[in-house]
Every structure is written in C-alpha cells, then in structure tokens.
C-alpha cells in the first residue's frame, strides 16, 4: 500500500518533467534548444513514470527496469539524429541579440571541406 503511494508520487514527478519538456518546446527559440528541453526532461520523466509503475504493480519491476534502460539508450540517440539532420539542412543556432554572430564550429568545419 505504502509502496503504491510512493509509486504514485514518482509518477506525478515524472509527468511534471514531461510537462516541463512541453513548456520548453513552446518557449525555446530554435530547433537545438527545443531538443535540449525535449530530450533531457522526457528521459528522466519517462524513467520516473516507469519507476512509479514498478512500485505500484508488484511483479513488473524487471520489465520496467528493461524499459528504463531502453529509454536511456535510445532517447539520446534519436535526439542526436534529429539535431544532426537539422544541422545538415542548414539550421544555424539561435543568437540572442543580432549584434554577435552565432558560434558554430561544425559549420566552419563543413565550409572548410
């Protein structure tokens, strides 16, 4: 019973992180920064929700452990692929204020070739 409550609290914290990810998607100015908000908050958010389910449902612990490992291995890979694709089609990182130019070592590298 008490484990059920702890699980519920974990799941609520997890969904708060997912909410933060959604707010981040709206507030951030460009693709890469949206990716920052999206990747990190969804990884910990899903992991916490899975942990909550594991505590709530006895017997599901190992399944949920497998899912958490899977999310931690695949989530960064998919966001890396998205960020890389965004860079390939020529998106520049956003800069605050128009005066300075954006810092982009990868673009400089590609221009050299």
């Amino acid at each position: 019973m008490i484990m059920g409550y702890i699980g519920g609290i974990l799941a609520i914290i997890g969904s708060l992180f997912l909410l933060l990810a959604a707010i981040g998607l709206i507030r951030m100015p460009d693709t890469y920064n949206r990716m920052q908000a999206g990747t990190k908050a969804t990884t910990l958010g899903s992991a916490l929700i899975f942990a909550g389910i594991a505590l709530h449902q006895p017997g599901w612990e190992l399944k949920m452990t497998g899912l958490i490992i899977f999310v931690f291995l695949t989530n960064p890979l998919s966001s890396h692929a998205l960020a890389r694709a965004a860079h390939f089609i020529g998106m520049n990182p956003f800069v605050k204020g128009k005066s300075q130019s954006s810092r982009d070592d990868l673009k400089a590298r590609r221009d050299e070739e």
Binding site: L20, I23, G24, R27, M28, P29, D30, Y32, N33, A37, H87, P93, F94, V95, K96, S102, R103, D104, D105, L106, K107
Partner: peptide, 12 residues
C-alpha cells in the same frame, strides 16, 4: 525553461 528571461547563450 521556467525563468521568464530565458537565460540561454547557445552555440555549437
């Protein structure tokens, strides 16, 4: 994300 001034200074 929550801070209204959005303190970011991004680059690659």
């Amino acid at each position: 994300v929550l801070k209204p001034s959005l303190p970011i200074n991004p680059g690659i």
